[in-house]
Design a protein around this nucleic acid. Sequence first.
DNA 1: CTTTTTTGGATTGTATCCAATCCTTGCTTG
DNA 2: CAAGCAAGGATTGGATACAATCCAAAAAAG
Lengths: 214, 214
Amino acid sequence: MNQVKEFHTLQEKVTDMIRESIFNQVYKPGERLIQDELASRFGVSRMPVREALRCLEREGLVAFLPHKGAQVIGFRREDIEELYYLRALLEGITVQKSMNFLTNEDKSGLHLFVKKMDQDIENNDMDSFISHNHQFHMLLQKGCDWKKIKLLTKEFIEGYPAHVPSLIPKTMFVSNEEHKQMLRALELKDPIMLRQLVESHIMRAGNALTQVIE
Amino acid sequence: MNQVKEFHTLQEKVTDMIRESIFNQVYKPGERLIQDELASRFGVSRMPVREALRCLEREGLVAFLPHKGAQVIGFRREDIEELYYLRALLEGITVQKSMNFLTNEDKSGLHLFVKKMDQDIENNDMDSFISHNHQFHMLLQKGCDWKKIKLLTKEFIEGYPAHVPSLIPKTMFVSNEEHKQMLRALELKDPIMLRQLVESHIMRAGNALTQVIE
DNA sequence: CTTTTTTGGATTGTATCCAATCCTTGCTTG
DNA sequence: CAAGCAAGGATTGGATACAATCCAAAAAAG
């Protein structure tokens, strides 16, 4: 089903594992990440761990203090609000620019992902839904030729909030109905409408999340 | 004059030196960065070099390919357009949110920087102008409590385009006049006006740059 | 008893060494 | 002569070893 992730270097694998550990609250915000501990936990030396931490620093998940190492960044309520606002803004722009350059193949791919997400909802398979949701959003912005903004939205899509475990089934359903509206905007060839749909889609998800967080 | 930069780790020093080398076209876009070469050039081992390259990857200056190392990223004309558009958008939002939380001390600091830039123009001291310009823009968004967006705009402000050597004296003058308008918006306590000024300020700079680049 | 100093352990930062990978060049073979 | 294959060098990725730094707790001084 989900293709097994293929890593080219150990460092990428370690990056993924640490990221997952942070998402799963194994390491809590504010906690110091001891390189030796991580290294022995994952059965590698400290070197790939260090580079992995640098990558996570770039993703905004940890912070480096000189001679004190890496610390897990904490997320407050307003941080979530900020992230979703920014994501809505940037992803909106991206899909608007992307739309007219999507091939028929891309479009059928989008339909396919929506269908798969419907199945995920039936099976109540959250992990699969999250994965398909990512792929849907990534594909939707494929046609945009601006590199930096795509990198940023990718960061947002794959970043922290998407993994919090409070994405209840109801949210999944609403979410996918909105995806279907986007497909309609796609057929109507209306980039402005698509942009607005994406923006409100993300803002709604953000608001739902902040409400659950309390 | 310019306070000497204080580095806590070798890696930070190396990061700075490589970044400078890229800005000064010692390493040109597309060129591969050989770790051994960099290490011996700067008189350190490969280890801090590797971490430095990771930091530069985060800044978007180089790209890593597995088992092929780091490559200098090239900038096309439309990349510059994208960067300035995004910077205008994000920095506009940031200063709008920041304005009402600036202290009197901050404000006098802003006036001071504008004065210093006037002097820089007289002395035709481009490097000093660039530095003061950075400090002005950073201070102007100090009051904003959104972390991620501030990190992004900081990246944009200190990133590639600001260092291209084509910032002609005339541009410096226009630029600082616009800074003075921003100070006026500050006195009028008009965040919307400030935001629009910042947006058009950055877009103008971007357009000037792309025109010179041909 | 409080404050300062020192000292040792824990942890990060850097160097050196070894292994894995890739790319080029030259050889072999059809 | 061309195409494919193999071997070697170049370069990156990872492991181990050592040095620098920080922090806290214990010892010494007031």
